[in-house]
């Protein structure tokens, strides 16, 4: 699974980045890379089997009093 995501990421970079470099859209390139690394940071650990905290739980905790109403 890790391999799958690495391949996907490389493919994404190869598809998008050259065009951005050519058009000198540096800002876009930075945003692109930032998002990509964010995505990788989420995906790769999970692919390796690391359990990441689930935001659903946080949201549930935040809205517990109201959520109880809907039980």
């Amino acid at each position: 699974m890790v391999l799958v995501f690495i391949i996907v990421s490389i493919a994404i970079i190869l598809l998008e980045a050259p065009g951005l470099v050519k058009k000198k859209m540096w800002r876009e390139l930075a945003a692109f890379l930032a998002y990509l690394s964010l995505g990788m940071a989420l995906v790769i650990p999970q692919a390796l089997g690391v359990k990441l905290p689930n935001p659903t739980k946080a949201i549930e905790a935040l809205f517990r009093p109201l959520a109880e109403l809907l039980k």
């Binding site: 945003a31 998002y35 995505g39 999970q46």
Partner: peptide, 15 residues
């Protein structure tokens, strides 16, 4: 340019 990375991010969140 953001489409593909955001897709990856979405997968990460969905996982």
């Amino acid at each position: 340019p953001l489409v593909a990375p955001v897709g990856l991010l979405l997968i990460g969140l969905a996982l």
